[in-house]
Nucleic acid binder design. Sequence first.
DNA 1: AATACTCCCAACCGCCAGTAC
DNA 2: GGTACTGGCGGTTGGGAGTAT
Length: 232
Amino acid sequence: MGKTPCCDKTKVRKGLWSPEEDEILKNHIEKYGTGGNWITFPQKAGLNRCGKSCRLRWVNYLRPDIKHEAFTLEEDNIIYILYSILGSKWSIIASHLQGRTDNDVKNHWNTNLKKKPMAAVYRYPTNNIETTTAAADLSTSTTNTLVPTFSAPETSAIMPCLTESSKNPSFSSSSQQDSTISETFSQLGENFMFGNGSCSEGIPMDNIDYGYEILSEIWSQEAAIEGVPNLY
DNA sequence: AATACTCCCAACCGCCAGTAC
DNA sequence: GGTACTGGCGGTTGGGAGTAT
């Protein structure tokens, strides 16, 4: 099957969208919808753009339900967890964050999160390999790095710590948050491996939040697909 | 003030899967 | 079953904005 171009790249406009183009795109979709076909959309809307470009602009930026504010620490935590389980499945990760697009999440990961040590923390248990470049601290290493592997119950112990950290008003700066969370995790590694039932900061384990619900759901789905026994 | 450098994000590219014919 | 076409995805890049020198 040969690759067919979606439009004549030499004749369509490229680069940043002007406010006028945004307005045309938005108005046309509000009035007529996408028409179910992005390739013919630019012609109908009177835009000198590639259909794919129109789709991307709408999906990633102009859609009314898109959030344009900064990522919260709580969202960061979810991204960390899901990335460690799923890898670079940005669309799936984004689907768990209301108002965020795959492009948003990918950019945020590449520019902010992957440099931080927390990116090396989670691994999904059972049949996953134990080495990964993706979950490693890429700011200091370019080779495969061994990272901790946590079981589902262990991860459930981590979640309250993360959530508590993200909600704690005493955290005054992001660097303070980062170092505290990293510290919590380094201690957690020893603590709950020996099953003492609490985080290093004494936060009880029975406060499982929605992050864990997401994990459970994914584990169930993965287990169903891969024939891996469901732990929950 | 001018230049160099870095960071970040919007947008593009190319591939793949699904579907229609 | 084979081909053409489209939508969607992940990887990558270009360039504007901010910061350092």
